[in-house]
Write a protein that binds this DNA or RNA. Structure first.
Length: 605
DNA sequence: AAAGGATGGTGCC
DNA sequence: TGGCACCCCTCCTT
């Protein structure tokens, strides 16, 4: 009954004054009193400062660059007279004044500075809010950040209710709909293990459909990891199936030993996960590399559960359908060395069909769990589109769900398929309800920080497959939060029916952003991919929430592969030559001091 | 310890 | 329509 335990989130601490080090060169008549220590946040004068970059050595370089002596640091910058050539381009008669002023690294303006102050990130006030993208405020004061419902727009459709349809729904459906779970079980403890065998960032995760403690993971290098988090020494790595980003994976619903994978190397593979024998079902670049403009990649992938139909989509807006069972037969033949054939020549690939704007990436495909002929696709043309697989033609989409930016993912709800959850790069998660809504508008928009960052795997909000009310969703958060002096990026659990943030789970081991999250289909387990690591979360079993202290019991973290070392009782494999380019070093400091951050966390507990 | 790089979407021309 | 500059709380290697 107890609601999910969440770590207390302290209010963002006020930024402490810090020293600023950039040196600016002003003309003397530009400003009379350049040192304006008391008016930090005031608008500075309109005059453009001239930023002198290093030509005059120590005189103008800031302390950060190490160019200033102690005396220079102590002297608050009043007026320095550099040689006239230092301000070449300016009239040599004009005396200039040096002033150390704060320069914002975001907008290059003065009078403020963006960046971390301790564990709190201060936004540039000249930019729109980093969270909701609206001007006039920053993330710290964003109404969507401090709102109880964590930035929710109420349903826009059916506001003026009481149509005939509503009465019908009310009388016939409402009573049959499952009541909202009284409490959600949130896996908020990393107790099973930490796996670091990927040498590049994790791009996708998938639980085995029948074996409860088997997880599959793909990475940016194309490597596929299969590991049993119940017995951590049982792991398998297939490194030669794909040569770059493994974008999506899906099990064959008819045979849980067979996995389909799509990759940016332009191939779709079908792999027997027991033997590792893999067969290429499709290759979009049979002629090899002819430059980036023509290289095709596979992104979205799903399997039609009833027709043994494989659906994949590429980065040019096309959808491909194929019947992979032919290839499975051929794989069997390969396995037994009966004879050699080229699987590609035998696989039945239909003509590709344009389902999104030509030339745009189709990043997600999902078949409706109840009516698998209903397909949803999403992509870089800012749309998610619903299709009937039986009647696929150009422009035959049943419905187009408009977004203001790229749509990272679109999923039907796992049980009834009546709701759709989309994640867009406009920092909003949307729920589209095909029963109580009309799909012209989302029934709910939830502001949530999952900005696009080219160096991260795109964030995708996912349903909890076990939630009978089909309302719980999990998604990683981009912006960090100040947790008693430590900057951490939590994983958020959101009740999409209300927009309420149910839990934000954090862990001191996880200093990095966790864009990839997968909830177990049967157990209360969360797998999250954060940078190159995978974490398995379980619900906190110690009910006492003595400010979280009881949570800090000793854990059996198991670190495998890349770091070549192991903590805890279980032994990591030592013969792991999988990760060649990792030296097992600890992460170095980031933009804010990560070591300090970690230390602060340790002290905190 | 600081610099650099990988790298995709966007908006402007 | 193509080319190109720009980017903001990354993360890892050199």
């Amino acid at each position: 009954m107890a609601p999910a335990q969440t770590r207390a989130r302290p209010l963002a601490s006020a930024p402490s004054a810090s020293s600023f080090s950039r040196a600016l060169v002003y003309h003397h008549d530009d400003t009379s009193s350049p040192s304006s220590s008391s008016s930090e946040d005031e608008e500075e004068e309109e005059e453009e400062p001239v930023l002198l970059t290093g030509r005059r050595g120590g005189v103008v370089r800031g302390a950060e660059e190490g160019g200033r002596s102690k005396e220079e640091k102590q002297e608050e910058p009043e007026a320095v007279e550099p040689a006239s050539e230092a301000v070449s381009g300016k009239k040599k008669t004009a005396p200039i004044t040096l002033s150390l002023k704060r320069v914002c690294k975001v907008c290059k303006g003065t009078g403020h500075e963006a960046g971390f102050r301790g564990a709190t990130y201060i936004d540039c006030p000249k930019k729109p809010c980093f969270l909701c993208k609206m001007p006039g405020h920053t993330t710290i004061s964003c109404p969507h950040r401090v709102a109880v419902e964590h930035g929710t727009f109420p349903a826009r459709c059916r506001e003026s209710t009481q149509t005939h349809l509503d009465f019908v729904f009310e009388r016939q459906l409402r009573g049959k709909l499952p009541v909202l779970k009284s409490s959600f079980v949130i896996p908020d403890q990393v107790d099973c293990g930490v796996v670091r065998f990927h040498s590049r960032r994790v791009t996708c995760l998938e639980f085995h459909p029948t074996k409860n403690s088997v997880l599959l993971s793909g990475d940016k290098k194309g490597q596929l990891g299969i590991w049993n988090y119940g017995k951590l020494h049982e792991k398998t790595i297939y490194g030669s199936i794909h040569s770059c980003i493994l974008n999506n994976m899906k099990f064959n619903p008819a045979n849980d030993g067979v996995l389909y994978t799509s990759s940016s190397d332009g191939t779709v593979h079908c792999t027997d996960i027991e033997t590792g024998i893999s067969s290429c079902l499709m290759d979009l670049n049979p002629d090899g590399w002819n430059g980036p403009a023509s290289w095709r990649m596979f992104y979205g992938l799903d399997v039609h559960s009833e027709k043994s139909l494989l659906l994949v989509a590429d980065n040019f807006g096309y959808l491909y359908l194929t019947h992979p069972h032919f290839c499975m037969i051929l794989m069997f033949i390969f396995c037994h060395n009966v004879f050699s054939v080229d699987a590609r020549s035998q696989s039945k690939v239909g003509d590709p069909m344009l389902i999104h704007k030509k030339g745009s990436k189709v990043v997600g495909l999902h078949c409706n769990p109840v009516q698998p002929d209903m397909l949803i696709s999403c992509g870089n043309d800012h749309f998610a589109r619903i299709w009937d697989v039986r009647q696929l033609e150009d422009g035959s989409s049943l419905c187009s769900l408009a977004h203001s930016r790229v749509v990272n993912s679109a999923y039907f709800s796992p049980l009834t398929g009546s709701k759709i959850l989309t994640t867009s790069q406009d920092n909003r998660i949307r729920v589209w309800d095909s029963i109580f809504g009309d799909l012209d508008h989302p029934s709910r928009e939830i502001v949530h920080s999952h900005d696009f960052n080219r160096h991260l795997t795109p964030f995708r909000a996912e349903w909890d497959p076990k939630d009978p009310s089909e309302s719980l969703a999990v998604v990683g958060r981009y912006i960090s939060e100040n947790y008693n002096g430590v900057a951490l990026h939590p994983i958020d659990f959101i009740d999409t029916s209300t927009g309420q943030l149910l839990a934000e789970v954090t862990e001191p081991q996880i200093m990095t952003i966790s864009p990839v999250n997968k909830l177990h289909p049967r157990e209360d387990i969360l797998a999250s991919g954060s940078s190159r690591s995978i974490f398995i979360w379980k619900p906190n079993e110690t009910e006492e929430s003595d400010e979280g202290k009881s949570k800090r019991k000793s854990k059996e973290f198991v670190v495998m592969g890349a770091e070549k070392k192991c903590k805890g009782k279980l032994e990591a494999d030592s013969d792991d030559d999988f990760d060649l380019d990792s030296k097992g070093k600890k992460p170095k400091s980031q933009k804010y001091d990560r070591k300090k951050n970690a230390k602060a966390y340790e002290e905190l507990w």
